[in-house]
Amino acid sequence: MAGEKWGMVIDVDKCIGCQACVVACQAENNIPINTEDLYNQRRAVQWIRIERYWEGEFPDVKARFIPVLCQHCSDAPCEPVCPVFATYHNPEGLNVQVYNRCIGTRFCANNCPYHVRFFNFWEPSWPESLKNQLNPDVTVRSRGIMEKCTFCIQRIRRSTRDAKAEGRGVEDGARELNPACVNACPTDTLFFGDLNDPDSKVARMSAEETGEHGRGYHMLEELGTEPNVLYLKKVDKNAKEASHA
């Protein structure tokens, strides 16, 4: 666990907005069921969400989808505002939430421009039938604790441990390493890997796509948060023609 810089590439062109990543994340990370009530209170917890936008006017209307998760910013606005150092940047380039340090000030969520930090306003609960599906590798966050996407660090830990036991390295893009959302995506929209490894898929993609002719962009780039999640913008034939005209 040294020298890595975990990052993600999201090819928005492929996203069909199916929400499989959302469900996978919910199941993997012991996130309680979001009810209609919670949505109305703006207290729903979704470590990854699909933002939907409509483009154009009926009947010439298009739906646009953007999966939004914690951007694991290199210069994260959430980190300096925590009075107890419950959120910090770890050596692997992850923006980390330490549950046992968190005292629930919610400053971090207020300072996050992406709205990807969630506060546990209530003690989490599950219907009786779902109690046995909780993931034992993930802490169940109690009331008064902030939580957020971890890039499924429990999977990173387990796969690196297993690899070490077998005397090998972790394979780039291996299913046991990938976060649950990446594994669940049916259209290969999401890619996960080590940005510091020049041979990894994400490193190659971000090198190719961040150039002048690349499709890569960071979300809210102008804020200077230096996210570790790279988006590849939608390929739109009509838009291209329009720009040429």
Binding site: M1, Y88, N90, L94, V98, I153
Partner: peptide, 8 residues
């Protein structure tokens, strides 16, 4: 000794 070695 990183927090996330044990806490996650």
């Amino acid at each position: 000794t990183d927090c996330t070695a044990c806490h996650y």
